[in-house]
Write a protein that binds this DNA or RNA. Sequence first.
DNA 1: CAGCATCCAACAAGATACTG
DNA 2: CAGTATCTTGTTGGATGCTG
Lengths: 137, 137
Amino acid sequence: MDSKIFNLKSKLEVYKAMTGGGNFADCPVRDVIQGISGKWSSLLVMALAEKPYRFGELRRLVPDISQRMLTQTLYDLQRDGYVHREVFPTKPPSVEYSLTDLGRSMFAPLQMLIQWAELNHDAVREARATFDASSRA
Amino acid sequence: MDSKIFNLKSKLEVYKAMTGGGNFADCPVRDVIQGISGKWSSLLVMALAEKPYRFGELRRLVPDISQRMLTQTLYDLQRDGYVHREVFPTKPPSVEYSLTDLGRSMFAPLQMLIQWAELNHDAVREARATFDASSRA
DNA sequence: CAGCATCCAACAAGATACTG
DNA sequence: CAGTATCTTGTTGGATGCTG
């Protein structure tokens, strides 16, 4: 993995990257972030980061996803190059999904965010409770 | 900042954290991620990571956000404890928004993802083009 | 200046039924 | 098994007009 991913830039530079330097319509960072900020995308990437899974296995692994959303999210992830789809011509057919190199490299920074969330969800919940309490006052 | 944020856990453990270990309805990680995965949340956090801004300044800084969404997103960020809102009783009133300590600590992993996106958006665009080309065939 | 209230369009997502 | 197709619903976000 390219270590340059974690070289810090100035905050302003990062912000400019996000806004596309004023070109808001076609901003590369927004474009990429959009693709992984769906309700199920990050979850499926994390599942596949463990090991490859078949369609039905993913369904059982994430019981609250609908078939439609599983199909569509996997399709989008495949289109963006994060996921590889391999069909085995058995009868009935089986399809295996796995992360590509690009998908694995994306998993690294994503994992940082997940871990932050895990460590700080108590603080967030407490902030919400405090905020709501003083709102009612 | 707590360095434990970046201690790697096993991929399976991270996945379990995301799914709430089977308790999908009240999963801490999903809960936190939801709050920052909105269309404007990360963008505003990045803007405020540079320095505090007033309402009107943020509007000019992000010209394609509507007033409604700016108000609402700032409200949500404040409720979750990422943003501090300070009213100066001038006439007319001015309101300054700034990141809290929690907001700043969240900005760090977020920045990693932004930088990954910036470095890899070409690969994603290429993957899309290749995929769409073979889809038409 | 910094909002709030209202209405409306667009899209994301769920439910259900059917197929190679 | 691994999808597709269709319909319906819920949420997000934008436009506009008004206020302390």
